[in-house]
Every structure is written in C-alpha cells, then in structure tokens.
Amino acid sequence: MSTATAVARTDDETGSATAARATGLVKVYGSGATRVTALDAVDVRFGRGRFTAIMGPSGSGKSTLMQCVAGLDTVTAGQVWIGETEITGLSDKRLTRLRRDKIGFVFQAFNLLPTLTALENITLPMNLAGRTPDNAWLDHVIDTVGLADRLAHRPAELSGGQQQRVACARALAGRPEIIFADEPTGNLDSRAGAQVLEFLRHSVDELGQTIVMVTHDPVAAATADRVLFLADGTLVDEISLPAAEAVLERMTRFDGAGRRS
C-alpha cells in the first residue's frame, strides 16, 4: 500500500505551514536518584497537511514527546505551540478546550467509551463542546472509515480494527488542526493495521489532515511522509519519504548502539 500512496507523499518540509512545534522541550520525571530525563532539549516542527511518524526504541521518549506536544502532559522546560497558540503555561481549562477543539487522538487501546455506541463515540468531543456536528462531513468521515452499518453498535460488539477505525473517525470528525496517534496499530493484526494506516494516509492526502503518529512498526512508519528518530530523549535522525526497509535498517542500528534499559 505504500506504493499506492507514495505518489502523494512529499518531502517538502519548508513549504508547508506549521501545525505544531516545540522548542527546547525538556521533560524530567522524578528527582534525586530516580531522576529520569525523558526529553532533553528537543526542537521539533510538524508541517500542516503532513503525516509524521515518530520512532525510537522503548524508553526513547517518543510517547512523552507526543504527550507533551498534544497538551496531555506538562513540560519541565521549553515551549510548545499548536497552530499559533502556545500551550505551555495554559490553564487546565483552556488546555482541555484546546484538546477538544483543535486536536484529535487515536490511542493504542481503550479508545472508546464502552457505554456509548460507535456514532456516539465519534461525536463525543463535539457533544462535550455542546456543538452540533456537521452532518455532511460526518457522513463523509463515516463513509471513509467504512463503518456506516456499525454505528449503533457498542465497542464490545466491534472488532479491534473496527474500534480503531471508530477512534480515527472520532479524531477526524471535529476537523482538528492536528491528530496525534499513539501506536494506533499496536494491538491489531496486520490486515486490520493496514486498513487503519491506509485510512490515516487517505485523510492526509484527501482531506489535508495533519497527523503525528508514534509507532515502533517500520511498516507503519513507512506510510508517513517523514520519520523522526528519537533516542535517549533527543532527536537523532530523520528520514523523508521513507521506505520500510530503510526505517528498519535505521532502527536496527539502535539495537546495536545499546538502547536504554
């Protein structure tokens, strides 16, 4: 599938507007003997309408980077912008509103509320905001994920792949500035994973969505326009228009270089 979408991929990083960026990002957990620096002065920029993958060995800080940029976690030092808004230092209230209105999320697991139907899960952020969804757009998104006949089902009645597609639809439904996906295919078999990746790729190409995806799967990363490599809390490498083999090769070098325990 990477060949099918490769046409639309672009390595034009400088030409696009910025969807999110961070400068001098530091995140430290604990103190004293248990002090761990998860992110060490990271500068990063995510272009609008681009699909960026973040890779790195376990403990490299890739999830932390995503969580800090997405406003889910506070930073120890540095600044983060979503669009033109600096989110470092925002109150919980305004940060919540920003997440609700400007950001879409797809997590590895437990993406949906078990008591809500698929449709209710998709419209949840809009309902929380007290907005009525744009029905034409909603229908379009639902058609794209191919879940029109599953809308009244509860998550327990959906397969893992279907659940992830509902989560993607939810992320897209509010037309966010940026979607953060944390290992979205981590719990899926390869076929279901491919469907989700295809859908993410599609939403970037056809709908102009910005996506940042954390993954440890080279095949998944190869779907992106750009792959950032993180190790020990710093950005160590970057590949544009990656092929799965190149990503895999780059990752193998980490294993040789002694990852963090």
């Binding site: 609700r100 999320f105 437990f110 993406n111 509320l113 952020p125």
Partner: peptide, 16 residues
Amino acid sequence: TREIGLLRAVGAARRQ
C-alpha cells in the same frame, strides 16, 4: 480511571 482519562483527553472539562 481509563474512561475518565479518555474523556479528559478528548476534551471533557473537569467540570463535566
């Protein structure tokens, strides 16, 4: 806990 966390992540305010 997880549900509440998810709700918060997708934009539920503390008040909600």
